[in-house]
Amino acid sequence: MLGIISFPLFVGATFLLNITPGPDTAFVVGRSVAQGRLAGALSALGIGAGSVIHSLACAFGLSAILAASPSAFLLIKMLGALYLMYLGINLLRASWRQRHHHAEGTAPVAALPMSPKRLFMQGFITNLLNPKVILFFLSFFPQFVAADSQHTSLAFLLLGAVFVVMGTAWNLLVAMVAGSLSQRMSGNQRLKCWLDRVVGTAFIGLGVKLAS
């Protein structure tokens, strides 16, 4: 079909890749812990939208052009790393503010909830600016498309659609579980502060790793 080979193997490999913890999973967990299930779900949908762009780029050859340009690759790599570190620093700052208010016995100022658009866009940008996702699409997808296929673009689009649907479904499940656990612990400000520090540090670590 469209020159796609070993489709069941592709589905199985995609499932294993999605359930393996990585930057996208960590981001969804972080947002779910910090702001609840809805925030995690919107972040998951944003990540899925980013994967759609990667699928289109792979299908029409834009990813190959980008990977062949060291300067463009380096720019996206640095932007993605800086953005993750920026998110991590914001979480750490929020944690420090909560600790300060707790030490003084004053009520912390409630953080303004992010709009659905902002939550979605954060997930979208985090995925879109991850150069390792670009390289993954370039290296993984071609293994399941015959070299002599007359419908290469359509084959990549179909594989991309399967990957996006499975990945988004998994991230939504992660958001629901992480958000539910966080909601149960929401009354414990000290634990919430600790979780913010862990997630913020993880975001910064991911940014540093992405830049290496």
Rank of each mutant, 00 (worst) to 15 (best):
Leu159Ser: 07
Leu129His: 01
Trp96Arg: 15
Phe136Gly: 07
Leu42Cys: 05
Ala39Trp: 09
Leu38Asp: 14
Gly22Leu: 00
Gly36Leu: 07
Ala64Glu: 06
Ala178Asn: 04
Ala202Asp: 13
Phe15Ala: 14
Ser6Val: 04
Ala111Ile: 02
Ala211Lys: 12
Ala44His: 06
Thr168Asn: 05
Gly160Met: 12
Asp24Cys: 11
Arg99Asp: 10
Leu173Lys: 06
Phe163Val: 10
Gln122Glu: 12
Val109Arg: 14
Met85Ser: 12
Leu91Pro: 08
Leu38Glu: 14
Gln35Asn: 09
Ile53Pro: 09
Leu159Phe: 10
Phe10Pro: 09
Gly80Lys: 05
Arg37Thr: 15
Ile76Glu: 09
Arg97Gln: 14
Ala44Gly: 13
Thr126Asp: 04
Phe137Lys: 06
Ile125His: 03
Leu206Asn: 07
Gly3Asp: 06
Leu129Trp: 02
Ala41Tyr: 07
Thr201Met: 08
Ile53Leu: 13
Ser149Pro: 09
Met121Cys: 00
Leu138Asp: 01
Ala39Phe: 04
Leu84Ala: 04
Ser6Ile: 06
Ala202Ile: 15
Ser95His: 03
Leu157Gln: 11
Ser55Asp: 11
Gly12Ala: 06
Pro131Phe: 01
Leu172Ile: 08
Lys117Gln: 09
Leu38Ile: 08
Ala81Pro: 05
Phe156Glu: 08
Ala111Ser: 09
Pro142Met: 00
Phe120Leu: 12
Ala103Leu: 11
Leu128Met: 04
Gly200Pro: 07
Trp96Pro: 15
Ile19Met: 03
Pro23Met: 07
Thr152Lys: 15
Phe124Pro: 03
His101Thr: 12
Arg37Glu: 15
Ala147Pro: 15
Leu16Ser: 07
Leu16Glu: 04
Thr25Gly: 04
Ala107Phe: 14
Trp194Arg: 07
Phe144Val: 03
Leu92Glu: 07
Ala178His: 04
